[in-house]
Amino acid sequence: MAILKVLDLSVEFRSKEKVVSPINGVSFEIEAGEVLGVVGETGSGKSLTAQSIMGLTPLIGGNVFGSVLFEGKDLLTLSDSEMQTVRGIEISYIPQNPMTSLDPVFRVGDQIIEGIRKHKKISVKEAKKLALDIMEQLRIPSPAQVYMQYPHQLSGGLKQRIVIAIGLITNPKILIADEPTTALDVTVQAQIMRLFKEQTIERGISLLLITHDLGVVAQVCDKVAVMYAGNVVEYGEIKIIFESPKHPYTQALIGCIPYMGMKKGSLSAIAGSVPNANKYPEGCRFHTRCPHVTEQCKAVAPAMSKVSNGSLAACHLYE
């Protein structure tokens, strides 16, 4: 059974002049122990999707529609204090930038145990033991020493590990990681991704991994949801989608990523850029950049439907 089910999620921002709706009709689900990648370019709405699941969107003035079912209960209907418990214990969020998500004036150890001390009756001593345990699992060298240090004394990779430790210490069922390695070097990125993989397997945690990096998705995830301009355009098993992508956007996106040993001149760009949420095109939102565009695409938005390889794609080519 799916542990998290996102159904028809939409977000609206209202101002006096107009209503802007950056994401519409986003649906996907995560099984227990599964790694789902949400991939897309800047402005595709992937981070907003994560924030909406965590119930953080109202804080920035957004209205959320649809439902987010976590173990059968709809998170969007919970009160603030109920949601705080969910956020503290059941679902953890790992933000993008480890440099700015730690408080510079507190020791990292105190920041790791803050969450669990708030939500569970546990002594500082016990919490510290738990923290050191997790730090060790995350391969932080000399954890007892790092525990007493301040964020500015740590390297980028270590800071990201601390942020992951904060997320893991309450033993959540779901981890939502928003571009967790964008700020890191390639060799460190590989280390952090290995940790995610190890931890999800060991603890049976589900991971929702938000990233713009298709390489990371291909190597780490079980399933992927490809987002474009606020919609999920293709959704399915990793191997199937990377071997035979169906949606023209997924095809184009994979085609514009250089790989080792790629032949010169074979990189294919997608003309134009991702449309702004203020003025999404009518019909299919990819039609302005799509090589297979027809009159129908300009008028009618395609719905998600099953395609021949078993994944879901929102494209008139396959209806």
């Binding site: 390297s155 980028g156 990779g157 270590l158 070097d185 390639v186 060799t187 460190v188 990125q189 590989a190 280390q191 991704m193 290995r194 990096d213 298709l214 390489g215 990371v216 291909a218 190597q219 990793i238 191997k239 990377f242 071997e243 994979i254 990523i257 790989y259 080792m260």
Partner: peptide, 20 residues
């Protein structure tokens, strides 16, 4: 070895330990 390939069948990444 640390380039994440978009081929899901490629061999797993050989992680380089430590940081610069």
């Amino acid at each position: 070895d640390n380039v994440f390939s978009t081929d899901p069948n490629s061999k797993p990444i050989h992680v380089l330990e430590g940081e610069v």
